[in-house]
């Protein structure tokens, strides 16, 4: 997005080209993106690089066991650069495992958020289009989901159906659908009242076309903001379940898993749990900051 799309602070002076504009460009840039937002974006950029290139960046195979190097301390605790973040109880390189765990945690959170958004938007539109009884049923489902802590529902499903990576990711995809559905329904209802939807409908467009090609692009910014705010919560949920040993299963590893088994070595090797903990906190913090920033940017009324 360009700098000119952030006119909140000052009244619009026309779209660029005024005399003092060149001088204040830099200033406007930093006003539009406070340092915290820039840092958050930088961190997320780093995480995306890790997601894309984790196997290339990792100095060792994340599963490689080296019993002679067990519990080697990281470089900031007088360890060597051979294992910059130290090793765990089986002599596996913590940095390599961290990179793979970041990849798995973020991919799961991303896929889950996509599922939640698809589910939420579909059900929200469905309710807005059919109204009547179908809408009542969907609203009841939304209320029921919102009334029960998701952690408990997830644990129950894992107890009853067992665990696999696919099931786990789909399960995480049910997190937050109800909020997105509620927003999508509300926005679609008000969009239906607006001229463009009526115009397209009177031209004879099918509901698929009206909702998919016209209403969806018009409400997309708000939906993207709510997806961004959903993302860190999914990371927290996934890491919580993996921490309990009920999420991602070994030999795969997620950030929560690493903290989970690092807990057993909290006395002798606290670095095993500290590195992934820090990554979880920084990532959720960064995405929350970006989400808040996007929200203020796109839709100040959501505050």
């Amino acid at each position: 997005m360009s700098v000119e799309t952030f006119p909140d602070e000052e009244p619009r002076h026309g779209s660029g080209g005024s005399v003092h504009n060149a001088k204040s460009r830099l200033k406007v840039f930093f006003e539009a993106r406070p340092p915290t937002v820039l840092l958050a974006l930088a961190w997320i950029g780093l995480m995306l690089i890790v997601v894309a290139f984790a196997p290339l960046l990792a100095p060792y195979d994340y599963l490689a066991i080296s019993l002679s190097d067990r519990l080697a301390p990281p470089v900031f605790l007088d360890g060597g650069w051979v294992h910059p973040l130290g090793t765990d109880e089986l002599g596996r390189d913590v940095l390599s495992r961290l990179l793979m765990s970041i990849r798995i945690s973020i991919v799961i959170a991303f896929l889950s958020t996509l599922i939640a958004a698809t589910l939420g938007v579909s059900l929200g539109f469905f309710a807005a289009y059919f109204r009547g009884r179908a809408e009542q049923v969907i609203l009841m489902m939304i209320d029921a989901q919102a009334a029960m802590p998701f952690m408990i529902i997830a644990l129950a499903v894992l107890a009853f159906f067992g665990n696999s990576l696919v099931l786990f990711t789909v399960l995480m995809g049910f997190y937050g659908w109800e909020r997105i559905a509620r927003i999508a329904r509300g926005l679609a209802l008000s969009a239906n009242e607006q001229g463009y939807a009526t115009a397209v409908r009177d031209l004879g467009a099918s509901p698929w076309r009206i909702y998919g090609r016209h209403i969806l692009p018009n409400i997309a910014s708000t939906l993207i903001v709510s997806m961004t705010l959903n993302f860190p919560e999914v990371i927290l949920l996934e890491s919580g379940l993996s921490f309990l040993g009920l999420g991602v299963q070994p030999p795969l590893s997620s950030l929560g898993n690493m903290v989970g088994y690092g807990r057993d070595y909290i006395q002798s090797a606290p670095w095993i749990m500290l590195a992934p903990s820090l990554v979880i906190v920084l990532t959720t913090l960064a995405i929350s900051i970006i989400g808040d920033w996007l929200r203020d940017l796109f839709d100040p009324t959501l505050r």
Partner: peptide, 22 residues
């Protein structure tokens, strides 16, 4: 109060354990 939304309870708990217990 940001910690309420960004620090998972197990990280908070283990950090407290690391400081006050270990």
């Amino acid at each position: 109060s940001v910690i309420g939304f960004t620090v998972p309870s197990f990280v908070m708990g283990l950090t407290l354990a690391l400081v006050f217990a270990v």
